[in-house]
Write a protein that binds this DNA or RNA. Sequence first.
DNA 1: CCTGAAAAGAGGATTTTTCCCCTATTTGAT
DNA 2: ATCAAATAGGGGAAAAATCCTCTTTTCAGG
Lengths: 218, 218
Amino acid sequence: MINKINIALVDDHNLFRKGLIRLINMGDTQQRYHILFEADNGNQFKDKMVTPPFPDIILMDIDMPEVDGFEAVEWLQRTHGDVKVLVMTMLESESAILRMLRMGVRGYIHKDIEVEELQAALETIAANGFYYSEAASEVLQQNLNGLERSGNKVHLSENEREFIKWATTDLTYQQIADKMNLSVKTIDGYREALFKKLGVKTRVTLALYAVKHGLVEL
Amino acid sequence: MINKINIALVDDHNLFRKGLIRLINMGDTQQRYHILFEADNGNQFKDKMVTPPFPDIILMDIDMPEVDGFEAVEWLQRTHGDVKVLVMTMLESESAILRMLRMGVRGYIHKDIEVEELQAALETIAANGFYYSEAASEVLQQNLNGLERSGNKVHLSENEREFIKWATTDLTYQQIADKMNLSVKTIDGYREALFKKLGVKTRVTLALYAVKHGLVEL
DNA sequence: CCTGAAAAGAGGATTTTTCCCCTATTTGAT
DNA sequence: ATCAAATAGGGGAAAAATCCTCTTTTCAGG
């Protein structure tokens, strides 16, 4: 047990991070864990992931400003595929859980858990395992046997995801097109494709769908 | 300094509470603070406030299930007027801040603050003072001269409430008018009034407002 | 390496809906 | 009597939504 396990925290609540550090250290009688760095959001996190040392485990929130947890994990899988991610969030929607599991995170737990569960999760992941909360396990279960049939697997492209976020604002499609450096016509194509895929008829219900499925935060 | 200062925590994130306790104790070199109890939400909090001992200071979140922070503080002012409340929340909307200040809380701070600020707030309040974050102070300032007039507690009429529900569907205004047995023009009046009152610019953000504030279920 | 089908990006044209501003009744409370 | 709401209308600009066509890119299979 010579090498410490390096941990990084990515969460936009400073106080939550600081408290978490205390909690981790508290249960860490053998001084195995070392908090390598903290980050306020995905952007700051990316910045800190360019130069070594890199963390072994990352505790990642989802709902954060600028770059959210989904984007951060996606980026991470591309650039640092070996780093283990433990998602800690308030979001327990099926789509949020599935999206994270699909990207191969090592654990998914709710923020409102007992300290013991957090420590169990950390130890499991440190020991190269996977730790899923009850809610996450259920979702996993239900989606294992029946993955293909019920066409609920609506795949959204990156651009579609980004568009959906803008669609929940007061911006017009023209303004969204400018933001995304694309033609309004392309944007309009995304809109139409999403209406079909998601079974909605207006931008209003598209926005509500996005909220319901954790694609955007309120 | 014989008597300890009893503190109660009301917040629905267990992990946040536990971390907070660590943070409070950490800065408490003289062992002045004692965590009397914790509560998951306003209901549980009320239950714990029926039998002594009572806390001196309550750290209160706003966004909680069942009974939220507003209700809890309101109840507290009626039943335990002497207990000091320090609001700790992610909400920095003017209306939230004002509502709490009007009810006479002793402090209002954002959850995303430095540990030092938390400790300063606690000490100030323990010393019988008031501690407002910068955001809260600004709101206070702006509302000192002109307190009565603009009742910002947005009152919605019954029809406006019903309209808002329909507005979160795929129905057009014409169809909503039919549903409500009113002229499209009347509906359009509701729309415009609500846009003004709620500070939104499109039906999309109106719908999101409705969801956010529990006017409609997702 | 080539190819052909699919997906992504973009344009034109048109209709429907949303949004905005201004005016006019009616009703009820002060 | 007056003032403020709720209801309703007209007219018009802006945005959203629908439908069709057209290139360019991408990528798997021959």
